[in-house]
Write a protein that binds this DNA or RNA. Structure first.
Lengths: 167, 167
DNA sequence: ACGGAATACTTGCACTTCCTAGTTTGTGCA
DNA sequence: TGCACAAACTAGGAAGTGCAAGTATTCCGT
């Protein structure tokens, strides 16, 4: 029994025909996200990482300097600044990042990845690639279709960041 | 600048070609879920509901008796039993559901939707249909494609509940 | 140059989620 | 029948998220 198919049936019985398929699609995205997140967190847990913290480490590892202002990280990761503070607190306690002063702006603090952080994110990424991303549960054409459809959706939702570079 | 496209580029530069597209698809699903959830919660907030609580009310409103054991609700909604307890606590305080004893099994408690609960979920559903589900940001063919691809994915992930009916 | 506005970050609070452990009640085997 | 085991729910705690407010610093118009 598919709970979502059942919900769609109920929607149709109530006469909400215009909304039934959209409701099913939106709800399916919710459930799919839960399933994928659970798989990812299972892989990351032994490394002491959550997906949010992994994303932060990965972002830092891809910058030229290995460091970013907190606000930049918040914008790139599309999460609330307080969530970044929280993640950095824990990553710093684990020795994977350091807070550093910004050379020019006294307000901003830089988050900088440490050598241990680089090692951790490298290892975690290899495992995620092997156990989730290479075979996510979608065929190659499905992956392409998802990337196209969801990419356009995100674009229309204003999910893209303005281009700005600054240490 | 699309943060996900940029991540894919980094993946490719590192030589993780097998995983790059899957990583992009999985991450896109994460972001899409966040965007949709934010829209839904914006609609529900004036009603004092979260999506989790709305889903519980909707589930109850579709049962014959308007009541379900907590464990059933937990299984149907695919959430942890303690999360159901939490939702029911708040819905009960708001007068939208009631806890009732199970007639046959002393261990289980029934959650029962109240007339106010029915009114609230009806109104909230109409608004969600109008503001989100009818025009979710995907075309009709895209919605169909998502339902098909994600439905199969969920099926293979074991996301379907065994058929059992019991008050 | 200087004072109000804006920016960057942190703290406290509320909420949600899940985990572990506990209590109560039912089930089934000896 | 009786006793171990399982099931249903709740309580307490940790972690993540977002909002509102607070502090420190910078920006900018006059």
């Amino acid at each position: 029994m598919d709970p979502i198919a059942e919900a769609r049936r109920h929607w149709q019985e109530r006469g909400w025909l215009e909304a039934a398929e959209g409701m099913a699609a939106v709800t399916s995205i919710m459930r799919t996200q839960q399933i994928l997140l659970a798989r990812i967190e299972t892989v990351l847990k032994p490394h002491g990482l959550t997906f949010a913290r992994f994303e932060l480490l990965a972002l830092l590892s891809f910058t030229r300097e290995g460091a970013l202002p907190m606000a930049k990280a918040s914008a790139r990761l599309q999460v609330h600044p307080t969530s970044v503070t929280n993640s950095v607190d824990r990553l710093e306690r684990a020795g994977l990042v350091m807070r550093a002063a910004h050379p020019a702006d006294g307000r901003t603090k830089l988050v900088e990845i440490t050598p241990q952080g680089r090692a951790a994110v490298e290892q975690a990424t290899l495992e995620l690639n092997a156990q989730v991303f290479t075979s996510p549960g979608f065929s190659a054409p499905e992956v392409d279709g998802l990337n196209q459809v969801l990419g356009r959706f995100r674009h229309e939702a204003g999910d893209f960041v303005e281009t700005r570079f600054a240490i």
